[in-house]
Amino acid sequence: REAPPPGHPTSCHVEMLEQRPQLFMAEMESLSTPYNIRISDVTCDSFRIGWDMAPEDVGRVTHYFIDLSRKEGRDPNRFKHRDVPTKLVAKAGALPMAVRGHWFLSPRTEYCVAVQTAVRQPEGADYLVSEWSPVVEFHTGDYGTVHLQQLLQKAEGAAGRLLRFSVFYRNQHPEYFHYIRSSCAGVMYPSLKDSSGSHGSPINGTLSGVFLSCNTEFDTGLPPRDSPYGPLRFQIPASQLLNPSTACLLLHRRLLLHPSTGDRFCRAHLPQLDLAANPFLTYNPPQREGEEPVYCHARDVILEVFYIEPLHLDQGTLVEISGHQLMSLSTANAKKDPSCKVCNISVGR
């Protein structure tokens, strides 16, 4: 048998040349679409995500693309074009994988998420990517214990010096107090906390109570003359709500014998304050016989007490404020400014 001419490929070379296009075509075959997306272990700033894909893709996928967006104000099915980089890129690894980061996750927020798998091509070539998976929705959680402790430390740093006060108070419109007398037998019953204030607060939409204020004007020691909430003010002596010599004994017995839902919730979810070293609201017992106790509040924060028990109007007095009703200063349904460095921690945006 004659030897092949110089430069002519041997049969082995021919076989390899014939296989190269097949290998190249196999590499360029499209990836299967991820399916059965699973979200677990959701917190206020993290979650775990897993999914299934075709067995033949498991060994060759090099990267995961994750498109994450808030559900509000958008079509959850409008994701980026497959050739446009996604928001989150991760090297392929074991599933489920953890996704965490306060710069793109906020507490108590609904999100939409979809994933792509990808194979990184040789230098200069684009990624080979799958189609987007079906969209899955999930809801981030409340602030955890660590986050609440950070918020407490922020508030302690801004509290300022203490000022004396003598009454807790609540401003409302005449219609409100008329309703309380005519329809509620004069009792202000606890109502569910709205979503104002810290977005991730665990009491929002969960704990019921009656809001009371205790801030005073620094020059008079009395409640402010003006109010954004209404011209009528319910006032109750501080000694009726904050008197450790009597109230704490009754409270201790009630917590042991008949703890309310609110009691159990607060113990489980909120940081407990040391009554002897509270930087926001203090009680100093009388120093001599015949003296009155001294109550103080933090000067540089707007302090609101969320009282979780019913209050009867007969426990206090109803007076008309001497100033103006400043509606522009109302904090009703107000949201905390997410860019504020004084009262925000590094969770959420």
Rank of each mutant, 00 (worst) to 15 (best):
F280Y: 04
F280N: 05
F280M: 06
L281V: 01
L281N: 00
T282C: 04
T282H: 01
Y283D: 01
Y283T: 02
Y283V: 04
Y283M: 03
N284H: 14
N284M: 12
P285V: 07
P286A: 10
P286I: 03
P286K: 03
R288W: 10
R288M: 13
E289F: 02
G290E: 07
G290F: 05
E291T: 09
E292V: 12
P293H: 06
V294G: 01
V294Q: 13
Y295A: 02
Y295T: 01
C296G: 06
H297V: 14
H297T: 14
H297N: 13
H297F: 01
A298C: 10
R299T: 08
R299Y: 08
R299Q: 15
R299V: 04
D300N: 11
D300K: 02
V301S: 04
V301M: 11
I302R: 11
I302Q: 11
I302S: 11
L303A: 09
L303F: 08
V305H: 00
F306H: 09
F306W: 10
F306L: 12
F306Y: 12
Y307P: 01
I308K: 12
E309T: 12
P310Q: 08
P310H: 09
L311S: 03
L311R: 09
H312W: 12
L313D: 03
L313N: 02
D314F: 12
D314Y: 11
Q315Y: 10
Q315M: 15
Q315K: 11
G316K: 09
G316Y: 10
T317D: 10
T317P: 01
